[in-house]
Design a protein around this nucleic acid. Structure first.
Lengths: 211, 211, 211, 211
DNA sequence: GATGAATGAGAGTTCATTCAT
DNA sequence: TATGAATGAACTCTCATTCAT
């Protein structure tokens, strides 16, 4: 029996690639860097991946799997309360941010190195993105149907905006800092999304001039 | 007098680079591609730019200038109305989206090729991003001070979320389609931001279960 | 086991570079020329040398080693004779000239291509030159101490003059001809050095006019 | 009438080239460097010289002229003395070294950048070298004929050795120092050449062993 | 004569990929 | 499976030279 199975060797190379791409970027990282990190020979890389592009695609698909598994995981019930919809939203955002916080190198690669590499990679990224968009859109739709969310905005647009905010929150607050307070971040975003910017829900604002 | 001035030749090469990077990506685009597009010799490129990285930086800075000029432009007054703050917000978003819609190739390059290229390029992108963040943060702060916007969220976080939504809106709705309805898009985003997701501002939602 | 070891491949490339530089000069020789001579691919060159400058430095250092090994080699005793010092000198010159005659391409490169290439190369050439200068200076000093050589001239200057004569003898009489009589050349140089130009060691020259 | 004549402009460019080649070497110096030094436009260079190689050849020939003029200059008589031949030799060496000391940049270019550039340049350098060799050979021959110099060595070989010593003296003692004592240098070299290394012109050295 | 923007051949170098061991 | 020396296409960049003004 070999010391490492094929599965393990592949994982080892994949992690080395994630680590390398996160630090050098796809373009500047070389196969040499990856195999040096993985402590295997150059040729070994090509036993598990077809090309440099292929290992990038594998990273995307690996992350895709993680997202899918997270989304499929059953969620613990939220205590019924006044702002039930908001609590659900906040929990979702937290789980989403936690996933990225738990895999910062991969997140870095997916979010910041997702440059035009290859049609196949492009497709993989599109699928990953679509997974998120579908999830959020379906979710908003259901919440609207149940009267838990304002029906005035299209679930599809909402999903896009949600994804944009998530990306930016990860890039701006999770990737740079070793320990961001994910909980607080999710709470604040949920708060903004739930209540909106309108200052006073009853009265008229007092004589505003142009800014 | 030469047929083209140095300024024009530089612009010509810059536009060729934008066009090329938007289609092939920074990595796959070669200097040969750029000069072929610009219809000049290979060496001419190096009279105006130091390197492939340098021309990318120039693109970023060119776009930076456009954004700055747009932000400095005086805005026509918004008719005083019930939802004054919302109207102001919507107008800002529209102008922002219009700028990107008016320079789709450049937007594509900035938003999708903003990969790790070079420390200098990195810095340039950071400056561009900061320009937007500062603008939105200042704006929200002022509107809050004037009572036109809910004081419950930090202007800084708001700015980040706003930028995330803008990026995603551009990537999702402006870059793919030749003619997106920018006005409608701005209106919908403003609507979501203004009112939030809360379904009913008075009553309690009716017996929701977990989603 | 590969057909050639790394050591051999390096030597093969080094020899090809010596051959090429000797014929085309550093400037006009291209990496293509070198690898064509060595019958390997272009990239192989860069497995063994960092750059074109680096291989030149390697040539210099390779020759440095040869000179050092020659100088360290024990010399067979010279039969005690009337002109003991002169015999020692002649033998040294012969060995020196033989080394260059035995590696004419390298000598050509070292002596005629020793142009300003690189600070590192410059330093390497300086070390090589210093090796020779030190050897001759030490030698003269010892011979003076033992009373075998005229004490009227500084060993340091003597070393420089000796080096100059050697360089010129190699350039003028060894590099151009496939088979120069190294022995006779060494004998004549030693003769000149030993006896000097003074025509008659006792009498006064007869009524010389200006030349 | 133009501000500068063609002759002057050519000289200006020639001096700029000497200055540049002395500092950067032929290979690393560019036409840009030369015209920048001469403060003229790039194209102007090509009105006076055919190519980069051509200007190098012009430098060689310019120096050739200087050497020739010096050699043709009548020499002041040397006071008749005991060592008449030695005094003549010393004066010649001094004049030779003075020429190089008076044109250090050109000397640097001729002696250290005289790398393989071009067949034409090669030929020019050969002519320059031959000028010196002929001069010394003729000189030694005449001195031998007049009994002022030892007849035991061939004038031709002597000329080569003399040139080698001159080159080395210039490289080692004149080029590096702003103010070398040319007189003393000439005196020491003449001393070595005149008297040789033989320690004692009458007795036998006392029982020397091998070094 | 003088200019300097434009040229483009050609250089050195990189590195993803292969394959004999 | 694993290795790593070898490959060579493709790249960026330089710079001597030209020529319309």
């Amino acid at each position: 029996m070999p010391l490492v199975t094929g599965r393990e060797r592949r994982r080892q190379l994949l992690d080395a690639a994630i680590w390398t791409f996160a630090r050098k970027g796809f373009r500047r990282a070389s196969i040499s860097d990856i195999v040096a990190r993985a402590q295997v020979a150059r040729g070994t890389f090509y036993l598990y991946f077809d090309s440099k592009e292929d290992v990038f695609l594998a990273i995307v698909e690996d992350f895709h799997d993680r997202v899918r598994r997270m989304l499929e995981e059953p969620e613990p019930p939220v205590p019924l309360a006044d702002h039930h919809g908001r609590a659900l939203l906040q929990r979702t955002l937290r789980r989403w941010l936690e996933l990225f916080a738990g895999h910062r190198d991969a997140a870095q690669v997916i979010l910041k190195e997702a440059t035009s590499i290859d049609p196949k990679v492009e497709a993989g990224l599109r699928r990953l993105r679509q997974l998120g968009l579908n999830y959020f859109a379906t979710r908003f739709e259901r919440l609207q149907a149940r009267g838990l969310v304002n029906r005035g905005v299209s679930p599809d647009l909402l999903a896009h905006l949600q994804m944009g905010m998530m990306d930016e929150a990860v890039i701006g607050f999770i990737l740079p800092e070793p320990r961001g307070d994910v909980d607080a971040l999710a709470a604040q975003i949920a708060s903004f999304e739930w209540d909106g910017l309108r200052p006073d829900r009853s009265g008229t604002p007092a004589v505003p001039r142009n800014v």
